[in-house]
Write a protein that binds this DNA or RNA. Structure first.
Lengths: 244, 244
DNA sequence: CCAAGTTATTTGTCATACGAATTGTTGTTT
DNA sequence: AAACAACAATTCGTATGACAAATAACTTGG
């Protein structure tokens, strides 16, 4: 029980009790501690382990069920579902996945999705972006340029830009998708944080600027191309891998 | 007698109590009965309304919280979150959204996402699809061709094909995304089910066949183009709107 | 040996009580 | 009178114990 307490302290957001339990179990499922098809320990055991009441555990399990990780049946127990059922586009699930291990495969998969979604979002934004949206994008660029001090600050400004483009697409689904993906990327930086020099910093900012220029010029194809360049650069770059 | 009353409310899975409550509240939130920022009724009122215990309600609310629809704080109550927080790529949430009203906007948004994701998934599949995957895709085609009796059968075979392509991409995230989107499309058919004649049926099947041909020929660009053609045809087609 | 009924186990639901947190109120002080 | 601080009320969070429902495993009669 003491071990669990110390584990909880690593939780950044010390939220309510069942959220911590859900996160702990979620990460363990991702890690393969409980492979798909197997059963979780009985309620009593988990209760003992975390030192919580049954109410809390059941709410945690309900959260995991809602996110597609597990399914409970009477008598047979709660078993871990196949990975195909996991809601990977849930911010929490993706966060757990990243926390469990941000390997190259996941990194590539994320990049593929980005290359599929974001250029099209930029193209859509170019079609019907009003002055306010463009001003907002410019502000994001300014924030990126100003964020020379901390790598985390830059990542957050970058995230904000890409989220804004997703929102500017006018497509609810694209906005949601961009938001989840960018959040996962930012979380991954907290694990592995390579260094970045100032010259590259300015280069990356310029590349983002070209996206806004294309959107303002109402040139969908150019916007898409500029966005794709930013993502590809991020993927292949030795330094800023996955940065943009 | 009473089994046929609801379209797909209890049609799908007459699951446990809290799932029904969660679904009911979820659809109401989508419908704007409780706009973002406002508070849900007090626990006591909802308890009364559904005639359930507090445990069930709390598990239902926990489910909605896990899907990003609501957030609870002590003393202030549980309030509906802004639509930006909703996990639209959760199968349930998307299903509720479709059940609430499948308007043209949502239809277009879905098509945009499909045009972004699926061609790239097909291209990836063309890069590294083995014999088994191709055989599976051929089987899906055969199912589609055979499904001349019921419109629903055809939709399900179609769904299976697109899901298989998503899986064949080798990208976990794309597979998950395709699965959610296609499921939402199939659900939308249960609401509006236009008619389809045999000639068009065969045309659509042929178009799908071209995708598999391109994948088998390991031609990513052709695969992407063929997939895009299928989706665009579905969007613009007078008859099979959104069918694929 | 088989089949139908029984039992045991595990999740699902209910009911009640108390704790924690926050906000509105009220009383005190300046 | 105004500002501040202590308090109370309200609402969610957690704990606890009991019972219901469902089903896998067992038992028993044929």
């Amino acid at each position: 029980m003491e071990a669990e307490i110390s584990f909880h302290k690593f939780n950044r957001k010390a939220r309510s009790n069942h959220d911590q339990v859900a996160r702990a179990l979620g990460i363990e499922i991702m890690s393969g501690v409980y492979p798909p098809g197997t059963r979780l320990p009985h309620e009593a055991d988990v209760l003992d382990r975390f030192g919580i009441s049954r109410t809390v555990l059941r709410e945690a399990l309900k959260t995991l069920t809602a996110k597609g990780l597990i399914a409970s049946k009477s008598r047979v127990g709660t078993k871990v579902l196949d990975a195909t059922h996991w809601n990977l586009f849930d911010a929490d699930v993706l966060s757990w996945k990243v926390a469990q291990g941000f390997d190259e495969k996941l990194s590539n998969d994320l990049a593929e999705i980005r290359r599929a979604i974001e250029p099209r979002a930029a193209a859509l934004a170019a079609k019907h972006a009003d002055r306010d949206v463009i001003a907002q994008l410019r502000r994001c660029i300014a924030d990126m340029r100003a964020a020379t001090d901390s790598r985390r600050h830059f990542a957050e400004a970058d995230l904000e830009f890409h989220r804004a483009v997703g929102a500017a697409s006018g497509n609810m689904l694209m906005r949601a998708l961009s938001a989840v993906i960018e959040t996962a990327l930012v979380e991954s930086f907290t694990l592995s944080s390579p260094v970045r020099n100032l010259a590259q910093h300015e280069t990356v900012v310029r590349k983002h600027e070209r996206i806004v220029d294309a959107i303002e010029a109402r040139d969908p194809q150019a916007a898409a191309a500029a966005m794709d360049a930013v993502i590809v650069r991020g993927v292949r770059g030795v330094d800023g891998a996955l940065v943009t």
